[in-house]
């Protein structure tokens, strides 16, 4: 059920154009034979498996830092880092585009930060730190793994203890090799003793930092954020 026009002047050209498009595409796209689609999927899977083997073979470990080296000049298929380096990985020297902070107010929005060897980057008056990669696996359903990283954001002040900070961030690697934070996940200021990617979902054991409770909460990517789909949503009292 479409809404009433809010502004007829704006909509004089736009709504008919959208309606015409909606009607036209019903005839425009034709479903290819299913067998053809399945054959293409098999081919893609084979290409992906080959690419994975290539990337795995090119992992260079130096001074405790795992780096996925990129293959040479582009062949016919995407040549670049399609997959994250295997864990453990150091984020030293890597740049991550931080996600929208949503409820994580202490973290800066959509900011690109490069982590030094100390794993604490500074943006404005905020320190963004990485404790480590806690899990990897495909969380978006596109066949490529994401990294789940434990991060914290705190004020850049000697008086800021960071006690109330710390949560998870899901990071994806773009085909140009750069890292993008998809979203933050989980409550801030608690401990995360165990994090897994299971059946495409992020399953986190969350322990109260200053309390006795430990809970398992499950989050699933819905295209824009990680929504909690199982487990308690808050610690008691």
């Amino acid at each position: 059920m479409r809404e009433v026009n809010l502004d007829p002047e704006f909509d004089r050209d736009v709504l008919p154009a959208l309606s015409a498009y909606r009607a036209a595409v019903r005839e425009a796209f034709v479903a290819p034979p299913l067998e053809q689609v399945r054959a293409r999927a098999r081919h893609r899977a084979a290409v992906r498996a080959t690419a994975l083997t290539g990337v795995a073979a090119s992992v260079v470990v130096a001074a405790g830092v795992a780096v996925a080296s990129l293959p040479g000049p582009p062949p016919t298929d995407p040549p670049v880092a399609d997959h994250l380096p295997p864990t453990p990985v150091s984020w030293a020297g890597e740049t991550i585009l931080l996600p929208d902070p949503a409820g994580y107010r202490s973290c800066p929005a959509r900011t690109r930060v490069t982590f030094p060897a100390t794993m604490e980057a500074v943006s404005g008056d905020v320190v963004i730190g990485i404790t480590g990669t806690v899990a990897t696996g495909d969380l978006t359903g596109d066949g490529r793994p994401e990294a789940v990283v434990h991060v914290y954001c705190r004020l850049n002040s000697e008086f800021a203890s960071g006690d109330g900070s710390g949560h998870l961030m899901v990071v994806t690697r773009d085909r140009d090799g750069s890292f993008t934070g998809l979203a933050y996940v989980g409550p801030e200021g608690q401990d995360y003793p165990k994090v897994e990617v299971r059946d495409g979902a992020l399953v986190a054991t969350i322990r109260q930092r200053y309390g006795p409770e430990s809970q398992v909460r499950t989050y699933r990517w819905d295209g824009t954020s990680f929504r909690q789909v199982a487990g308690p949503t808050a610690f008691p009292g």
Partner: peptide
């Protein structure tokens, strides 16, 4: 399909 598209949009359209 939309979930694939929204996650893809961030990373693979240009690829």
């Amino acid at each position: 399909a939309w979930n694939l598209a929204t996650s893809r949009l961030r990373r693979v359209v240009t690829a």
